[in-house]
Design a protein around this nucleic acid. Structure first.
Lengths: 215, 215
DNA sequence: GTTTGTGAACCGTTTCACAGCA
DNA sequence: TGCTGTGAAACGGTTCACAAAC
């Protein structure tokens, strides 16, 4: 597997979408896919798909396409989801509870091993089968359980403090659901998921498209 | 307000982040911001911020910066969130329930007016103060309540059918939480929010950064 | 001195086009 | 014929640099 060079961010995002489609095709017992089909599922041109997959190496067969299981395995290996990842979730509010119950994570090699909350009245409560723990135990649990990823699902004002604690505890990456940009070291990647921003982007598109506003 | 030209997608996204920061500054009673401050809050260069805000017109004052309330109002107007937007939520599962309870939406001019679910056993149940309605009533409610936005929070296999029904009912844009690309008409914009894809992007970054996988 | 607004240069991704292979 | 792999061209967003304004 050659091509250990820099992978552009847009490509990384699309690889994830290709994998999603490959898993669907696996369930349907399809043996091969063309770059065109893959592109349709990810909203990309076929030439784009071939460029993206080029970083993996020569995995396609001219005239045939890509072998579904082999390509899925190659992408998983490249992304790093062929290994198991253990995550700590901070925040037992609405979003935190939904994430804790979200089956799809577990199915894909991600495992939430513990839930934390700053609020004393919430600590000790049962949430989706987990007992909410105190932030005081964060560092201990991260080390003992070998947690690699922190998930932040707390209100914006508390997000930075939680991020600092997660980094100090030894987490290697953060998934942030709080609508606030986190300041962390260069060596700790952060990915933001912001519902409101997504909704605003949508409303903007709608307004541009139809001119009118509201409703 | 000139500059009614095409707005690049990355710019639209950043405008939303600028607005987020402007609201924070408003709460702090700050009168002005510089492009540098705004950039820090959105992860962009100061020159980038000035270019982005350039589409609004001459809103900044050299030597001073941008007036917080005026800029916030200008961005809101540009995005279209100065008007109220009514949304219909489809899917009363984990994510749907979290979204229904998510206060931040309501605060910002977005209002979920009804929740629907295909599952008969769920219809009629109370969720976050709403009574879950049958999909049969979708078109009626969309028209009667003047719903402009559809939110999809159902499993992937049902997403496309729901999208079709929403479009047929007259929705003007779709916020999609299902991990599946939707095929809808060009005139109905779609914005995807995909947790798993976000997690995979994060894991990829971590793997690249540290070389190692897992944990 | 500080900070905006903007044309120009820069850079990286996307698209094109076609040779090569099944 | 169908489809991949890949240089080369095209495109569009980002960064630079500086004149103008406060």
């Amino acid at each position: 597997m050659p091509g250990r060079g820099r992978v552009p961010a847009p490509t990384a995002h699309r690889l994830s979408l290709y994998l999603r489609e490959l898993e669907r095709l696996t369930a349907l017992d399809r043996a091969t896919v063309s770059s065109r089909q893959l592109g349709a599922a990810a909203g990309a041109a076929d030439s784009q798909v071939r460029k993206d997959l080029g970083i993996i190496g020569h995995v396609g067969q001219p005239g045939i396409g890509y072998r579904v299981p082999a390509l899925a395995a190659a992408i998983r290996s490249l992304i790093g989801v062929d290994a198991r990842w253990r995550a700590a979730l901070v925040g037992a509010g609405n979003i935190g509870r939904a994430l804790a119950s979200y089956r799809r994570f577990q199915e894909e090699g991600f495992e939430i091993v513990a839930i934390f909350d700053r609020e004393p009245s919430v600590v000790g409560r049962k949430v989706a089968g987990y007992t909410v723990q105190s932030m005081d135990d964060l560092a201990t649990v991260v080390e003992r359980e070998g947690v690699g990823i922190g998930i932040i699902a707390v209100p914006p004002d508390g997000a930075q403090a939680v991020a600092d604690e997660l980094v100090a505890a030894g987490v290697r990456g953060i998934l942030n659901f709080a609508p606030r940009r986190l300041r962390v070291g260069e060596d700790v990647p952060t990915v933001d998921v912001d519902f409101r921003s997504a909704l605003e982007r949508l409303v903007f598109e709608v307004s541009q498209r139809t001119g009118g506003k509201g409703t």
